[in-house]
Design a protein around this nucleic acid. Structure first.
Lengths: 268, 268
DNA sequence: GACTCGTTTCGGCGCCGGCCGAACCGTGCC
DNA sequence: GGCACGGTTCGGCCGGCGCCGAAACGAGTC
């Protein structure tokens, strides 16, 4: 029986994301890939049974879609729209959480004290508000992700920002009057045989370019249909490849050359 | 003492909107104006004490800002960013709620049956999923809002859609490669002495044009910095005026003439 | 068929959060 | 000063939800 939210679809949707465990699931799924129920349970630190219930609710609410294979239940974000929604919420939440915390520093002290009182350690955080790595493995993972990673279906990290800068610098994308692809940019995409979906940019369709705030870089990289197409191309042509099972990427030698020649991107 | 969301800013933010009463407050405040605590309490059908607590939480969370005047507590959305966030969530929630309901019609039946069982009437809804008006006053209000209203800080309803269509038809705005103001459009705005904020369109700033799905018209109208500027201008120059205390607008005779001459907009 | 493993269902526990009414506070008005 | 009114604080009630562990289920493996 569905939960009663007095007929408010907004509240019902928000309630899905209002639980820390479900929120963690969605954040993990922002890498754009399918995870199994067990992986998500472990990554969030809850029992498999708990995860199973959460997943059912997220799927029923239209945020996730599932695909069963054998004894596995694969789960992913239902659509790019869900990804942008969660990104937007995350960015807003992070920035205002920071502002609020800064404005009332004593509130943080109180929270820390309360966490102590309940025996639950206050979460360690770096200066920028992200959780601090708790061991070497996590630290290397974070550094790899800072270099290059996917953000749902587009490129992020220093690589993502560098590509965004290059597109702007070469006039393939402009930010006068809002982000948009220039004529020059369209020609360049055609020359590289990179295609955008026909619906992109039309009302109701996915925006062609979207600015997406990058947590590690504190700068913007490019999302939208263009960001997705570039990421797809980079993976298809083996310019980048996945590292392990997370969202971290490695630029291949071929990829380094291609990015340099096509866009003048220099990677450190 | 703040609520523990295990350090997930996303969950903490979503929790603010996960309550039907708080969601109703935010939806009401989408008209872009300041409401008093009492008005919100009555509009949502809760006790003033309850409303007061909800408002404190929304303000502490950075979604609302307050302004005290005498014995009144005026409250509004903290920023246009909050408004777009809530709009986005609402649109997504409405469309997927519909899809989910359509996919599993028997679930709706069950819900209706459950509502009956608990003695709480299932909310009456029109074909498009909006709550059906329960009396004449509400019906006239809805019809006035369908004609013309504000949507946070820009124009919506048939008027909003008509203006959006006119801007597109005259080439002042284009939707190739995403919505953007054309050169022609910039000149027109300058000629009308309509100014956009300097930060608009820059990364981190507000987008210049944004498509915003219109509930009543099922078509898009224009938001963003341009939408806000147009609405401001229309109110400043008395092309439109508020009806009562809601978000409904009336086009003045002067306004009708101006809209026709400047944009070729014909109002039914 | 026995076993493993990923997942699901169920019962039960604990807690949190929303709601109200009553009392209180401060402002503005008469 | 007295009163009305909007807003707030507090205590208490209640329902719902997240969590777990145990048990069941089903697919794949030996």
């Amino acid at each position: 029986m569905p939960v009663d939210h007095r007929g408010s679809p907004l509240a019902a949707l928000a309630a899905l994301l209002a639980d820390p465990t479900r929120a963690a699931f969605c954040s993990a799924l922002l890498d754009g890939r399918a995870w199994t129920a067990g992986e998500l349970a472990r990554s969030a630190g809850v029992a498999p049974s708990t995860a199973s219930e959460h997943l059912s609710r997220l799927i029923a609410g239209g945020l996730l879609s599932e695909e069963r294979q054998g004894r596995h239940r694969y789960v992913r974000l239902a659509s790019p729209a869900v990804a942008t929604l969660i990104e937007d919420l995350t960015v807003f939440a992070d920035t205002t959480a920071e502002a609020v915390a800064g404005a009332t520093a004593e509130a943080v002290d109180r929270a820390t004290a309360a966490a102590h009182a309940t025996g639950r350690p206050a979460m360690a955080r770096t200066a920028d508000g992200r959780p601090a790595p708790r061991n070497l493995r996590e630290a290397t993972r974070q550094s790899a992700e800072a270099r290059a990673r996917t953000c749902y279906d587009h490129l992020a990290g220093r690589l993502g920002v560098a590509v965004a800068d290059a597109l702007l610098a070469r006039g393939l994308v402009t930010d006068r009057a809002g982000l948009a692809v220039t004529e020059h940019g369209r020609a360049w995409l055609a020359a590289q045989a990179i295609e955008l979906p026909a619906r992109a940019g039309r009302p109701g369709g996915r925006p062609v370019v979207r600015s997406c705030l990058d947590w590690t870089e504190r700068r913007s990289h490019l999302g939208g249909a263009l960001g997705a197409a570039l990421c797809r191309t980079a993976l298809d042509r083996a310019w980048v490849e996945r590292i392990g099972s997370g969202r971290a990427l490695r630029v291949t030698p071929d990829g380094g050359r291609a990015l340099h020649e096509l866009l003048g991107v220099e990677l450190p």
